[in-house]
Amino acid sequence: MSRLAWRVAYLREVRDETPSARTLVLDVPGWPGHLPGQHVDVRLTAPDGYSAQRSYSIASAADGDAVELTVQRVPDGEVSSYLAGAYAVGDPVELRGPVGGWFVWRSGDPAPVLLVAGGSGVVPLMSMVRARAAAGSRMPFRLVYSARTPDDVMYAEELKRRALSDRGLDVSYVYTRRAPDGHGRPAGRLTAVDLAEWGWPPEFEPAVFVCGPTGFVEAAADLLVDAGHDPRRIKTERFGPTGG
């Protein structure tokens, strides 16, 4: 008997985020709620019994039985290509969670927050931005979001709206391949100057969350430590191909 039970979730709604990513709004009967930054394990089982399992960060703030995951479509990804493709409204999927408790923002934490996202690493950080608003928190939040091009920005409309309406939330963008006209910053990788300009000074002792591909996370964490941030205040979450 497992301590962590698998549940059956059903797809309620789909939202396209970018040409290659979509958000799945799942109904999970009996969902106990979650903290922003936690994730779920999703399991698919074929009729012949073969099963595949992956972890996904939760994108939404806790809201009843609804759990939102944002899935990036990857060629040959046996789980993601199904979830981002053929998986249709009303279809079931097995899910367990929430799991994880380290890469998590708690609304009672008295530190200002710096979120650094690389690509789809924005997903758990978006959960934090949404949970902050849901909790009515006034804690200063800064999100520095690195994306390849403007077309690759997830939650683009919502972030634009929240940057205006969520008091104390600043959102800055770093484009690595192509910046929109008038952006001011030429396309290129995240630098120390970006983090100095759009992050918090180390003296503010912010809680820092960095999420993205492994190389991005290592580079960003190194820049933050070099700038004087206490490594113990920098929480990281890395992802990469499964290699299979």
């Binding site: 992956r54 972890s55 789809s120 191909p241 499964t242």
Partner: peptide, 26 residues
Amino acid sequence: TFADTTFTDGNALAGPLRELFALEMT
């Protein structure tokens, strides 16, 4: 070609360790 992406740090152990431990282990 790319395979599915997944966590490559100890955050990936949250689910599997939760099968064994009553407390959050990451």
